[in-house]
């Protein structure tokens, strides 16, 4: 049985576009599943529905075998949730935060204190456990946050943007913690992220979400392999690349496909990138388009994203930077 099953989830916020437009996916037990997408794609809304915080307009979902609409109480007992913000009570100590959280799940006595000690130890908070959490660094608060989600030994752990706002080194350390968790506790983890690298590193299965829809699903390697071949990145020398001209120039070449131009960046795919480069350069030169540099790379998740949504990840993030409802909070 799948640990998480989402079927055709639809959610519209009043006065806004559809946050979710029929999201479906399924997560196998004991795996790390990544929901990858730019800000505003609907990742957090999906997590809110799966963790019973929010209700879908239509569609259904089960988590750990329990229906989120019919039996939210059972879902809550089975999951741990680590939200986007550090949901730590700064006026209490790290230990007090964990004790309260454990009690709300019905843990008591020695079982509770032992669990809290374990978690403080494991998240390198043992020394800071009796200090007020407001004095913790960002990384420490984040670790406490994850520990809070784990107190009651959930079957499914939700991590909503676990490394957003963390320094790069702290982020990498957090990845290690998450990977270790999944290995040791046999947890099912659903993680949302807008970092391609994070999804690539951590998730064994991915759903790429764009504008409230799942546009691709599979393992990161599988998704990249489906693209076949390499990515050729050409930096054009001209201020604004003339998209149609470039596409016309390269469209006739054998084995070169998925040509996309954005500003000065030209991306194309080829079965064997290095072999295609001379022909690409010759075609561009023939069309009078000057070239600054050429790189050949293995397919990345960015290419996967481009392939399925028609825009690069960076572009999608920028278009979301000023969403229709300006100032709307991240959902």
């Amino acid at each position: 049985m799948a640990a998480i099953e989402a079927e055709e989830l639809v959610k519209t916020y009043p006065g806004e576009v559809r946050a979710l437009d029929g999201v479906s996916f399924s997560v196998e037990p004991g795996t790390i599943f990544g929901l990858l997408g730019p800000n505003g794609a609907g990742k957090s809304t999906t997590v809110k529905i799966l963790t019973t915080l929010s209700r879908p307009d239509s569609g259904r979902a089960t988590v750990a075998g329990h229906d989120v609409l019919a039996d939210p109480a059972a879902v809550r007992r089975a999951v741990g949730v680590v939200g986007q913000r550090n949901a730590v009570d700064g006026e209490a100590t790290g230990r007090e935060n964990l004790l309260l959280q454990g009690r709300l799940y019905g843990l008591r006595g020695r079982e509770l204190t032992a669990r809290v000690d374990d978690l403080l130890e494991r998240f390198r908070l043992a020394d800071a456990g009796d200090r007020f959490a407001k004095g913790y660094s960002g990384g420490m608060q984040r670790r406490l946050d994850v520990a809070l989600g784990l107190v009651a030994r959930p079957q499914v752990l939700f991590l909503d943007e676990p490394t957003t706002g963390l320094d790069p080194e702290v982020r990498v350390a957090m990845w290690d913690e998450i990977a270790q968790l999944a290995r040791e506790e046999g947890l099912t983890i659903l993680l949302t992220t807008h970092y391609l690298e994070e999804a690539d590193q951590l998730a064994s299965q991915l759903a790429i979400v764009d504008r409230g829809k799942v546009v691709a699903e599979g393992g990161p390697e599988q998704l990249k392999a489906e693209l076949r071949g390499d990515t050729i990145l050409v930096e054009l020398d001209d201020g604004d690349g003339d998209g149609p001209a470039v596409e016309a120039a390269l469209g006739r070449l054998d084995g070169v496909r998925d040509v996309a131009v954005e500003g000065r960046a030209l991306r194309a795919r080829a079965d064997q990138g290095a072999r295609a480069v001379p022909a690409v350069l010759a075609a561009l030169e023939g069309a009078g388009i000057p070239v600054a540099s050429v790189t050949v790379a293995r397919a990345s998740l960015d290419d996967v994203y481009l392939r399925y949504t028609g825009r690069t990840f960076e572009e999608a993030e920028e278009s979301q930077a000023e969403p229709a409802g300006a100032g709307a909070e991240e959902r």
Binding site: V79, G83, Q84, A87, D89, G90, L104, Y105
Partner: peptide, 13 residues
Amino acid sequence: DRGILDRFLTTPA
């Protein structure tokens, strides 16, 4: 604002 409310709401409390 701090997300603490949502954290409590996802517990069985």
